[in-house]
């Protein structure tokens, strides 16, 4: 059993206005929960000198008012803060379903992915859409979620927490998609809504941006919107499942608010 969430935490100045807080050095659900708890704690009990946070897989970059305090001051404040981390309750994760029209013009790299791994399009699509992913954090551009797989036990635990639908078992490695290399030459523009894979990661591009991930489909959902109010389909800690839809369904759903 975990002793304290703050055990093994490491602080490192990153710039004259920022301090990195590391929870270990590897991607894990446990490190992610520490990151999530820090964010929740800062929302509930803001530290006045803290100006911004950039969460990562197992770290949080904290920007502070450098005219009001030093790195050492902030570290001392955060150490006191982290002592209460164990008591922070994380809300039950939401399960967000993202409709995806796979292949064709929406997924121009699906055939290459199949060829790379000797898989059929159907097996890639079912492998991609049967797994439940965790939003480790949002970063890169507004609304971009870094999605990762969870260990089997976490999926089961969270399914129990939600108490509704039984979560699907994470398929064994043979049923999944092996690590997929990025494109040698990134695209200058990836259309908004594109669903890509790279390595063992997957994600949705919220905006038309450059990108090197292999595109296997597209969602009609608008992942990030500024009006009528600022909202992101995905937030840190959410669980995500992709649902395969047809071209016709895509056309129907396009433009319909999430």
């Amino acid at each position: 059993m975990i002793t304290s969430a703050a055990d093994g935490v490491r602080f490192l100045p990153a710039s004259d206005q920022t301090l990195m807080v590391y929870f270990g050095e590897e991607i894990s659900v446990r490190a992610h929960e520490c990151v999530l708890k820090v964010l929740r704690l800062l929302e509930r009990k803001p530290i006045p000198v803290v100006r911004n946070v950039h969460p990562g897989y197992c770290s949080v970059l904290v920007k502070f008012d450098a005219l009001a305090c030093t790195h050492a001051d902030l570290e001392a404040m955060l150490r006191g803060f982290l002592a209460g981390l164990e008591d922070v309750r994380i809300e039950k994760p939401r399960l967000v379903e993202i409709p995806v029209c796979y292949g064709g013009n929406f997924g121009p790299d699906l055939e290459d992915v199949c060829a790379l791994h000797g898989l059929t399009p159907d097996s890639v699509i079912s492998a991609h859409s049967c797994v439940e992913y965790l939003v480790y954090f949002l970063g890169f551009v507004p609304g971009f979620a870094y999605l990762g797989r969870m260990e089997d036990r976490d999926v089961e635990k969270n399914a129990g927490l939600r108490g509704k639908r039984p979560a699907l078992q994470v398929p064994n490695a043979l049923q999944g998609i092996p690590a997929t290399p990025r494109l040698a030459v990134p695209r200058r523009v990836v259309p908004a809504g594109s669903v890509g894979i790279a390595g063992t990661q997957t994600g949705v591009y919220p905006f038309a941006t450059p990108g090197g991930w292999r595109l296997i489909g597209r969602t009609p959902m608008k992942m990030f919107r500024a009006a009528p109010e600022v909202s992101s389909v995905l937030s840190i800690g959410d669980h995500v499942r992709f649902v395969s839809i047809s071209v016709g369904q895509f056309a129907e759903m396009e433009g319909v608010p999430a």
């Binding site: 990153a14 920022t18 990195m20 946070v53 950039h54 969460p55 770290s59 949080v60 970059l61 870094y146």
Partner: peptide, 8 residues
């Protein structure tokens, strides 16, 4: 491992 990056 991807992490937060500071201005500059």
């Amino acid at each position: 491992i991807s992490e937060g990056v500071a201005l500059g």
